[in-house]
Design a binder for these strands. Structure first.
Length: 222
DNA sequence: GACCAGGCACATC
DNA sequence: GATGTGCATGGT
């Protein structure tokens, strides 16, 4: 434990405990959730997934066969439901047509190749792709999101202008390559970001408060 | 009623 | 290449 990332992780884990992200769900449910949760609270996503589960649609072929209009109604509670139905359909086409719906086969592909394939799907960006690789595929890929960026930049640990790949590299270079660690770390960053690192940060009683740079968090207008 | 939520693609300059 | 905008429901 000799770098700031490890210290931050220790504190977050001590403060919040394991987050158990995407517990008890199949890899396919994680994939569906990764699309549905885009810029949306998980609570809303749960309702949508419940609709799919009730109809036994949490399987690649079954869900791919649902007409787009019907699919969009089922996922409506998740918001952006028309665009997300399209995005889900795009991703399902890859899974069904390239891997015959076999997720084990898909995740057996080497990481860079699979990541590129996922990014080739319209509606799958870097965070969604990496969430799928880490949380559904159990592959060692560190997921970056807006909170990750905010927490790291506001504490002055990275340049605010750093991009997705740069930030991802920062984590992957300074941490042991460990799926469990990547999983827990990302979820803890979302947790602390949700509570404290908002547009108007509440830094009192934040487990990272005393690690703030002189003068408080940088760029508080984010 | 404003603001926010585990992004992404596309238009415009 | 940078910046702005649409997408939409549900909770605080």
């Amino acid at each position: 434990m000799n770098n700031v990332l490890e210290e931050v992780y220790r504190r977050l884990l001590a403060a919040y405990g394991p987050q158990h992200w995407w517990p008890g769900q199949s890899p396919f449910e994680v994939i569906v959730g990764a699309i549905l949760v885009q810029n949306t609270s998980w609570k809303n996503v749960e309702r949508a997934i419940t609709n799919l589960r009730q109809r036994d649609l949490l399987e690649p072929h079954a869900l791919f066969d649902v007409p787009l209009e019907e699919l969009s109604e089922l996922i409506r509670p998740a918001g952006y439901y028309r665009i997300k139905a399209r995005r889900l359909s795009n991703l399902l086409r890859l899974i069904v047509e390239s891997y015959d719906g076999d997720l084990r086969a898909m995740f057996a592909v080497d990481i860079p190749t699979l990541r590129e394939a996922l990014l080739g799907v319209s509606g799958v960006g870097p965070e969604t792709a990496d969430s799928i690789l880490l949380y559904a595929g159990d592959l060692p890929v560190f997921v970056i999101d807006t909170y990750t960026h905010r927490v790291m930049a506001r504490h002055g640990w990275v340049e605010p202008e750093i991009d997705y790949h740069g930030l991802q590299e920062f984590f992957e270079l300074h941490l042991a390559e460990d799926v469990k660690l990547y999983n827990e770390y990302h979820s803890l960053l979302v947790r602390v970001g949700h509570r404290h690192c908002r547009k108007t940060p509440k830094c009192d009683d934040c487990p990272l408060a005393d690690l703030l740079p002189e003068g408080g968090p940088l760029e508080p207008e984010w």
